[in-house]
Simulated assay, not measured.
Amino acid sequence: MLPQIVESANSLILHQYDFSNFAEKARLMMGFKGLTWRAVEIPPIAPKPKLTPLTGGYRRTPVLQDGADVWCDTKLIARELERRVPQPTFYPPSTSGAADAIAWWAEQQFMRPTALYVSGINADHMPEGLHADRAKLHGLPMPSIEAVRKAAFRNLQLVRPQVRWIADMLADGRRYLLGDVPCIADFATYHVVWFFRGRHIDCREVLNPYPRLLAWRDRMAEVGHGNRIDIDADEALAEACAATPATPRPSQPQEGDPRPGQRARVRASDNAKDWIEGEVHFIDADEIALLHENDEVGQVAVHFPRLGYDWRPMS
């Protein structure tokens, strides 16, 4: 049964580009919640002049906006959507713990070799400047097209056993990875599998030996994207400029955390070079939000997950 469009969230704006697999995860989560939402198409490579004013410099895709609040990373976007629209849930109690662990594996271990394989096979067909942009993001020198192709086949050997793990989870005939209903593990794994479509050369033959995996993939695709409305980036910037950050929930700082009102800086802990700085607006064990100001949009609250991100208090 496909989700019905039962909840309007016209205030939500997803900054994304259509071939981003992480954006596909967010789009599918919107569909699962039955949302009406707006989309801004952003560049796949830097600079991103109509995104970074909203994020304090964070450049990854996608980000979710509601007025002067912006949520970074699909892990946190999922939590925010769940808070707003609790049902249907990404987090059934019966899959608690296992679902988050599988989601972390999919995005931290399965995604990277898959991206290198698919983009390497399609090395001649990727957007101009993409290879250089991603190499810079990871602190690596610009690779040759031949080096990118060779990396594809090295990473294929890492991809195949992990594809088999997914197939093994589905081998008993279950409809989703952890049972009869989808959970966050399905969304986090599906968007990596979705990426096998490639851009020009299709890479889905890696999945073909596993008919139950293919059937699961098709069930996830049927969730759809809800009701998407495309808008211009200037409209999103204007909304941020006209708004003020929402009053935060009560903070629950952990030992050693900065307190609301103190200044701190945050960045992704894997390979990000640039810190996002601001005053702590909200903090608990799962999330930290910083108030950031700039001339284009005024003050915004930029929200980050704690897991996978590094933070430092500032004097």
Score class of each variant (00 low, 15 high):
166 I>G: 02
3 P>N: 11
41 E>L: 13
177 L>P: 01
189 T>Y: 04
45 I>T: 14
304 F>P: 01
95 T>E: 02
166 I>S: 00
196 F>I: 00
242 A>S: 13
11 S>D: 13
31 G>K: 01
265 R>C: 08
308 G>M: 10
53 P>V: 08
128 E>I: 12
37 W>A: 03
229 I>K: 11
177 L>W: 03
30 M>Y: 07
117 Y>N: 05
263 R>G: 02
301 A>M: 10
229 I>L: 13
22 F>Y: 15
163 V>G: 01
236 A>F: 06
12 L>P: 03
266 V>D: 04
159 V>M: 12
281 H>W: 15
201 I>W: 06
65 Q>Y: 04
66 D>Y: 05
280 V>H: 00
289 A>F: 09
235 E>M: 14
18 D>L: 13
102 I>P: 04
180 D>C: 02
275 W>E: 05
135 A>C: 11
142 M>P: 00
118 V>M: 03
237 L>D: 03
15 H>N: 12
66 D>E: 15
102 I>L: 13
119 S>W: 06
149 R>F: 06
50 K>R: 15
85 V>D: 00
209 P>L: 08
190 Y>D: 05
140 L>W: 01
222 E>Q: 14
20 S>V: 09
221 A>Y: 06
195 F>W: 07
140 L>N: 09
163 V>F: 10
101 A>F: 08
144 S>H: 10
7 E>Q: 14
31 G>Y: 01
269 S>P: 00
189 T>A: 09
50 K>T: 13
308 G>H: 10
199 R>M: 13
35 L>N: 01
36 T>S: 14
76 L>G: 03
138 H>N: 14
283 I>E: 08
264 A>H: 11
191 H>L: 03
186 D>T: 04
46 A>Y: 11
256 G>L: 11
217 R>A: 09
263 R>V: 05
96 S>E: 06
106 A>D: 04
42 I>G: 04
95 T>I: 04
108 Q>R: 15
77 I>Y: 01
8 S>K: 15
139 G>S: 08
192 V>G: 03
197 R>G: 03
279 E>L: 00
269 S>T: 07
17 Y>T: 08
174 R>K: 15
223 V>S: 00
192 V>N: 02
270 D>H: 13
68 A>P: 05
87 Q>V: 01
272 A>G: 08
270 D>R: 13
228 R>K: 14
266 V>M: 14
161 P>Q: 12
55 T>I: 04
87 Q>F: 05
214 L>V: 11
184 I>C: 08
151 A>H: 06
166 I>C: 07
111 M>Q: 10
11 S>W: 05
228 R>S: 01
18 D>P: 10
221 A>E: 12
73 D>S: 07
110 F>T: 04
53 P>Q: 12
97 G>W: 12
9 A>R: 09
131 H>Q: 13
151 A>Q: 15
88 P>D: 00
90 F>K: 02
292 H>G: 00
109 Q>S: 14
98 A>N: 06
16 Q>G: 03
260 P>V: 05
305 P>S: 09
245 P>K: 11
160 R>Y: 12
258 P>Q: 11
158 L>E: 15
244 T>N: 12
97 G>E: 07
